[in-house]
Design a binder for these strands. Structure first.
Lengths: 245, 245
DNA sequence: GTCTATAAGATGATAGAC
DNA sequence: GTCTATCATCTTATAGAC
């Protein structure tokens, strides 16, 4: 998982951190940090609480309490509240991106010229919804956090772009092979629709449970995946292929 | 725009407010309230700030400052921060719901047996995206707020359901006529996908702007609408009609 | 209806002992 | 690395003058 550089999600910080920053009391972060236990507990707790109540809906005291560590440790490990949030966001990002890239690579490699829209969409969604379907609470919390950021005006779009655009471009490249000649703006808008559907699903808001009177469940990720693939694949074809001629 | 009863968005308050509640200093709220100017200014300011930063990301002081009224007035008019939020949420809800119901009614009345999936989706989206396309800042802020609530775990789904389910059921009724014999769970899941796409669009997160390098724009609601109709209509047909046989 | 003043508490952050 | 104690600030919310 390589070096996890401390990088802000906000775009306003200069990336001129060549050497150690002048901050005091910075943790070593080399090898297997001895306090890695507390560090991980803080990240897990923050992940859960931020996912449920948003960045501003949670105090560092609550995070520390949930993690069962002292109230000063979040600052010790992450400097600031924003630092905690950024660390939570980044912890699983590379892992997730690597899995999605690998999935798309494998699909394309295994299907040569016969790539389909369904296949591409499935390869794109599987690493996310597959993990979600397994019910790992850590990942589910992380996904809900992502879904919240996605719908956040101002910095949401920029943050999502910074972390996830490479994977999206990889998906669009495969889709272009499945739908040769389609227009770029149709492709972008169609992905936008798929992304919205995915984000609402990952938020597990309980919306569909109430609407359907319990017939469908927000946490049924397997059902969500199969519907999303069918829905989005048809959507891509209608919005892209139909207009490309 | 009749009586706008003070009603919490949270489900934990008893609906036993038959008469005036025992709270002190409650505003009259009858006729055209003399201080309606300040009241409206507070709602407008809160709408904008809540949409941008979320409920917890804004203080009542900021709201009052933005509205250019005294810091005590939000409490005077709405009792609490949550009261301000609820009032913002409800102010446009009935108006919006009425417009959407009317749009679906008009479509169904004008097309008899020849209802189509595209037509139903268009009639459902037009009152929202049409207004959004006109660029009214108040409505755009409101929509962004809705989009944020929609992706909020815990109470987001319940809140959306409480306010918008009747319209959704009206849409699904029309869709059932366009796709006779389709299964309910397919209909619910497909609407879930459409809803996600709509919510991401209304959030105006700037995501697609960056992804597309400026080719597509988050605030181009007309373009969003035409793509959403094509994408979702095909999605509904693929996920519902195909499985109904 | 509007404003001043202030209560009562929570928050991010830090210094320094251990 | 962990904990105690604390600062300065900001928060919601009220009481009461005008």
């Amino acid at each position: 998982m390589g070096e996890t550089a401390t990088m802000s999600l906000q775009g306003d910080r200069q990336p001129e951190d060549g050497a150690a920053r002048p901050r005091r009391g910075r943790p070593p972060k080399d090898a297997v940090a001895p306090g890695g236990d507390a560090r991980t507990a803080i990240l897990d707790a923050a992940e859960e609480l931020f996912a449920k109540h948003g960045l501003h809906g949670v105090s560092l005291r609550q995070v520390a309490a949930r993690a069962r560590v002292d109230g000063a440790l979040p600052h010790y490990y992450f400097d600031s509240k924003r630092g905690v949030f950024d660390a939570v966001f980044m912890r699983r990002a590379e892992l997730l991106n690597a899995a999605r890239i690998a999935s798309l690579d494998a699909y394309e490699a295994g299907h040569g010229d016969a790539v389909t829209v369904e296949g591409a969409v499935r390869a794109f969604l599987e690493p996310v919804l597959g993990v979600a379907a397994e019910g790992d609470r850590g990942w589910l919390n992380y996904f809900a956090l992502i879904a919240q950021v996605s719908n956040t005006p101002e910095w949401g779009g920029e943050t999502m772009a910074r972390f996830f655009d490479p994977v999206i471009r990889r998906l669009l490249a495969v889709l272009r092979r499945a739908m040769p000649g389609c227009r770029d703006q149709d492709l972008y808008w169609s992905y936008h629709m798929l992304s919205g559907a995915l984000m609402l699903t990952l938020s597990e808001s309980g919306r569909i449970d109430i609407l359907s009177g319990g017939l469908c469940r927000s946490d049924d990720m397997a059902e969500a995946q199969s519907h999303m693939i069918a829905f989005a694949a048809a959507g891509f074809r209608a919005a892209c292929v139909a207009r490309s001629g």
